[in-house]
Design a binder for these strands. Structure first.
Ligand code: SF4
Ligand code: SF4
Lengths: 148, 148
DNA sequence: TTAATTTAGGACTAATCTGTCCTATTGTAT
DNA sequence: ATACAATAGGACAGATTAGTCCTAAATTAA
């Protein structure tokens, strides 16, 4: 997979939050998305630090997006979870890439990198919302909707 | 990074082996490439299992490529280290991707995936050899060539 | 045959990632 | 005020990855 599980959880969570500005409980979100509750809570707290979410404590509290979903790019979320430089350096992990003497693969991998970066900055959470609902619906249909 | 460190080590090691069919000691290779020796040895042994390397024990032994470097693709190495399906499934880690209702990002990510796969099958160890020598030379020049 | 050298293989440790749990702190409702 | 509900935060446990170490087996050289 291209991202870590935590990043995937974050993307799913952001896509799963309501767009109407209402607050959503971490545990509800976790149950709905089938993500380990406490782990998701930690990830959401991190997203608050990254200013992608805001939270209030206590009853009626929860999390909500700080911006509309179509204004949050996948790249921002990835950067928040995996650092802003997760695509920097040699895509194959080689050390000390010399920009002056790139290997024959550098250009091809650079193109891959650029395409990933472009996709990440163009794709928004809004795009994922559509997918997420469909996926969840399918999973629900398959399982009968009850999970002990 | 797109691959694991072990995969990166494997690629570096394969690129660092001589092309003339002579055997190379694991520890020499490790020293030359600045990779932890025992760890590299394990990785090389795994590559023997995957039929990318052959080995002989004892003095005058070591490892060598089973095929010329230009006949070993990066994809083969990645498959040997990370499994043949490392690019399957949702590139963002979402579960239960329905092929019937792909999300708006599916096509873009699929293109990324395809480009990665294509690059991996077209790029060979031979391509990496050129790079590796240059990188090593640069590193050597910078450090003065002595490492205690 | 004996000794030295090197891979093979497994057990072990260290670090990171994933996930859980407990306690504070903050907010709401009574 | 009090009780309750939720996030904040840190300590903790498990799994996977990264890396080390030791012993056995194979090969060469003497
Ligand atoms: S030149 Fe080769 S080794 Fe260096 S970053 Fe580019 S692809 Fe990687
Ligand atoms: S449809 Fe969306 S969620 Fe499913 S695999 Fe494609 S990109 Fe991932």
């Amino acid at each position: 997979m291209l991202f870590t599980t935590a990043t995937g959880y974050a993307l799913r969570a952001l896509a799963g939050l309501p767009e109407d500005g209402s607050f959503c409980l971490a545990k509800d979100l976790a149950a709905r998305l089938d993500i380990p509750g406490p782990y998701l809570a930690k990830i959401l707290q991190g997203l608050v630090q990254s200013d992608l979410l805001e939270s209030v404590r206590g009853p009626k509290g929860g999390f909500r997006l700080t911006r509309p979903a179509h204004r949050i790019t996948v790249g921002e979320v990835v950067a928040a979870l995996e650092g802003p430089d997760s695509l920097d350096g040699c895509i194959m992990g080689f050390p000390t890439c010399g920009g002056d003497h790139p290997c024959p693969l550098h250009e091809a991998w650079g193109a891959v990198k650029a395409q990933v970066a472009t996709s990440m900055t163009q794709a928004t959470i809004r795009d994922l919302q559509l997918m997420d609902l469909r996926h969840l619906k399918e999973a629900k249909d398959r399982s009968g909707g009850s999970r002990p």
